[in-house]
Amino acid sequence: MKRSIIDLWVGIFVAIGLASIAFLSLKVANLTPQSADKSYALYAEFDNIGGLKVKAPVKAAGVLVGRVSSIELDRKNYMARVNLSIDSQYNFSQDTSAEILTAGLLGEQYVGLVQGGDPEDLKPGGRIALTSSALVLEQLIGKFMTSFAEGGAAKDDKQP
């Protein structure tokens, strides 16, 4: 086989490889080129984040508005500080609340934002004050069991 044809085929081969890697990066791993000016940061502190992961979606009314950019433990109050990266086209009021929700019974966990009524919007870097923690299944079952046992013994309605 002539050399030029071999060169052509190897060129096609390498192009296929580069296209595959591009596909894996962009379409599969979703490496969308997020520039800094298109999103702004917020943070929220939770008692317990359950199984929330970095890069988990942030949703408002079920619409994806951002992602979890990092998670760390606050050394002073030992709460989980979750940093969010929010798409700059969405603004949230200062009394917005954040909660950690689960998609389906065993699905992934995400941060849900509920818009409040305050006319003032949260500034970039601001803190979402109202938070409610993740539902941890074991704790839930534990609570249910104790209340069930107590309820059975004292017939005392202790449901929240």
């Binding site: 894996l24 990066s25 599969v28 791993a29 979703n30 988990a56 979606p57």
Partner: peptide, 11 residues
């Protein structure tokens, strides 16, 4: 797929 695949760790 996009939510769970990390470019560095997985790809």
């Amino acid at each position: 797929m996009q939510a769970n695949v990390d470019l560095h760790v997985d790809v």
